[in-house]
Each structure stands twice: as C-alpha cells, then as structure tokens.
Nucleic acid binder design. Structure first.
Lengths: 232, 232
DNA sequence: CGATCGATTGACGGGACTCAACAGCAGTGG
DNA sequence: CCACTGCTGTTGAGTCCCGTCAATCGATCG
C-alpha cells in the first residue's frame, strides 16, 4: 500500500517531486515546463524519435505498445496517471517504445531530452527521482493479459478492484479496457454481464459502478485456472 | 539493437558499469561484493524483506512472481542475465516483489540496502547507473503470456527468436519455459512439435536447436489473432 | 532394476475468438 | 423533425484453441 493512490494532482512545483529535486523554492529551476492537452490528443507514437520526456501532473494517459517491430498494430498497454513519466525510454534508446494518448484532459510537464540530460548531470537528486518513479511504475504496471492470469471475468474483476477508485477510470471506453485486459470487446461485455449478475457491479452502456467490493474480490480470486508451477 | 546482447560476462570491476560508477580504479570502492551461487540456489522469495540488492555478473536468474497477495502460488516471470539487478524494488518498497533462483551457476555482486543508499547519496553517477539498468530491464521484460500476444506456437516461436542466441537459454526446463510463456507444459510440447514439423527447429527432449530463423519469424508473425484495436 | 520426476501424447470439454446481426447514441443535413 | 450515417457496445451461434485429466515414455539416481 505504499503506492500513491488516487489521481493525486500536483499543481504547486514546490510539492512536486520533480520540482523538489530541481530545488524550486531554493533558487533552482525545473527544466520541465507545464503544458495542457485535451482529451484524445496524441502525445507521441511508438517508433518516433524521443524528443521530450513528459511528467504527468494531472489526468490520465493511455499507453499503447506495438507487437510487431514495424509499429503497425498497437494494443493498449497501461494507463499512466499523475506522478508518472512518459518517454523515459529516451534515456536508453533513441525511439519511443510506446504510443501515448491523453485519456482525459491532462497537464503535462515536458522537457527536451537534452535538458533532461543536463538536469541529470547537474542535480545530484535528479536521477534518484527518475529512478524512484521508474521503479514504482514498473511495480504498478503488471497487465493481466492472458488465461494464465485468470479467466476473462477474473481479470475484469481484478482490474475493477484496482482501478475503480480512480475517477478517470470511469471514462475508459469498453474497447480500450478490453485491450488492456487482453481480450476482445465481446468477451469483456459478457464478462461484465456475469459479474453484474452476481451483484458485484451495476453497469450501463458507458459506466461501471462497483457496489460490492467483497463479492468482486471473490470473483477475482476464485481459481479455476491453476498457475503454472514454479521451480522448487 | 542498443540492448546488450548475449551473456556478456563482466569480470573486471573496471569494466563493470557499477564499478565504473563507483570510481574503481580511481580510488573509489564498490559497495557490491561478488559472491557465487550454484544452479538452483534460491536468492530470495517474494514477500521477504529486502536485505540486499544484487547485480548479476554472469549466469542467468529466473524471476517468479506471485499472483495473489499471500505469495502462495508463483509463476515464472522473466529470466535476468548478466548486467541486470535483482531486488531494486527495495528502494521503493520494503518487501521483495518477486522470487529469484539461479538458473545456472551465477556470480552475483551484492550490497546491503543500507550500503546502496549510502552509495546513492555519495556518488553522483550511482543513481544514473541504476536508472539506466532499470529502464533497460523494463524494456526487455515484456512477457508474452496470453492469446492477446498470439497463439501458443506464435509465442513459443517469438521466445525462441529472442532467446535462442543466449547460451543459458538452452538450459531452461520445458516446465519453466511454459510458465514464462503463460501456457501449460503440454501446450508448449505441442507447440514445439508444430514448429519442428515446419522445419524451423530441431528438438530433443532436453534441447531446442534453431535451424531456420526466417521460418521461425514467419511462424511468430503469422497473425491468426488480430490484436485489439487501439484508440485512434 | 524399481522409483521418481519431467516431457510427451491422446481424448475430451470449456472458454475465448470469430463472424454476424442488432441496439443505443451522436452528429449531419434535408 | 426525422431519415441517414457512423460508431460503440451488446447479443447470438459456431468454431477452435488450449486447459484438464490420464496414460506412457525417457532419463536419472540410488
């Protein structure tokens, strides 16, 4: 539970971890400058060369990855929220690994790759902030995508348990949600119907409302598929 | 292709990225001290409190994650090789996220969490090394686990394409490999038979030999399942 | 050789994908 | 106002891939 929860909006740079690391308030300047994007805006595409690194101040961003090298087909991968970075790959490779689109109206702080490099060299605490955020994101991004992670209703229930408290999650379209869970929209629709029939959620065409977390947990945990054995 | 390939063994600390960041050769001392473990040794278990952080100097380590919070059932997650860290989670949470076992005889450099913290505060380049390695590992660790990532033969072919050059990959038991790919051993066995019947590999009970990479690629790419559509 | 474990093969059933049709909803324009 | 269009989400029917269970085979070890 040490993960930051909720869409914790950070407005003041003096309370922003990046701002703090930059010494804002003590005469330091933060290389990341704020910018707003409206819902649906494309931030970058996989395969593009990394020009800027972004820090999400508020809102939610959908990250999609391409399965093939040519970046033709993309599949939803994760939802990044306030406090996460976008484009950190730029520090270790030339091109974006993933595409990013604003899922809601967002406030992003961006800095050119060059400025980030300068920042990393100049501020002793800068690298630690990026390391910290990178590790947290890595822990958090554990997509449940296949039968090995449970049946379709199980994965749907698990996702709802984890993301229902987020206000922005209610705006995730069914099609995208299905992609995040590694299933087809039809399968998601059927899964939600099963979950709703057990009284754990109430749903309309566009919204999902959790009414019984305990029951939802029961659905998510029920193990019909045993995970593969590990080495002993 | 900027990822380091092969089981690049690092023996001299003056050529090790961690050693370089520690200033070995310029009077600095590296907090990570080498230790050897034999194949099969358990390095740590998920849920244990993080005592030490390890850097892999040579060999391969199997990382397994537990699906449930109680850490009862574990499923293979990734194979980490020379140049990767183990236990970096310790910097942002108290307990190990994953279990680790030596897949081959390994040489590990370990440092206590406290010493790592001291090291991070004292050496300006230390955090950058960890950040760099963490990002690379994050890019590399992209497990293909479900139907959404392709059929069983496709995932098996994709894994072989990526890992066949690694000498240590030939020692991965079928059962473990199946877990890494999110399928049962029986399904892996059938998949390999299909791939072999197309002439892309030759296999015995214990070994897999790639004989036709082009054909293997064709099998991996053939799209019988379309990935879910991304937002446009 | 007997015991044990891992890998393979076969038979079977179920869950998810595919394809298709339909319903709900917004935008457009006559 | 309503037909028309386009898009998203739902529902149904059919197919097939993969998980499950069971038996067999191979390899290793005492």
């Amino acid at each position: 539970m040490e993960q930051t929860r909720g869409d914790d909006e950070v407005t003041a740079c003096t309370r922003c971890p990046v701002g703090v690391a930059s010494g804002v308030g003590e005469g330091g300047r933060c290389p990341f400058v704020p910018r707003k994007r409206t819902s649906g805006a494309v931030l970058h595409l996989a395969g593009d060369s990394v020009e800027r690194i972004w820090f999400i101040k508020s809102g939610a961003v959908l990250v999609t990855r391409s399965r093939d090298e040519e970046h033709i087909e993309e599949t939803p991968w994760a939802v990044r929220r306030a406090g996460s970075f976008l484009g950190l790959e730029g520090l270790v490779r030339a091109e974006h690994l993933e595409s990013a689109r604003a899922l809601t109206d967002v406030t992003l702080c961006g800095a050119s790759l060059r400025n980030v490099e300068v920042w990393l060299d100049g501020r002793p605490t800068a690298a630690r902030v990026l390391l910290d955020r990178s590790l947290r994101a890595g822990i958090r991004e554990r997509p449940l995508r296949g039968n090995a992670d449970g049946t379709a209703p199980q994965r749907a229930a698990a996702w709802l348990l984890e993301h229902a408290p987020e206000p922005s999650s209610r705006q995730v379209p069914r099609r995208i949600l299905a992609g995040l869970l590694g299933m087809r929209p039809e399968t998601l629709s059927r899964s939600l119907r099963v979950i709703a029939s057990q009284g754990a959620i109430r749903q309309t065409r566009a919204t999902i409302e959790v009414v019984d977390r305990a029951r939802l947990r029961a659905i998510a945990r029920r193990r019909s598929i045993r995970p593969a054995a590990a080495a002993d």
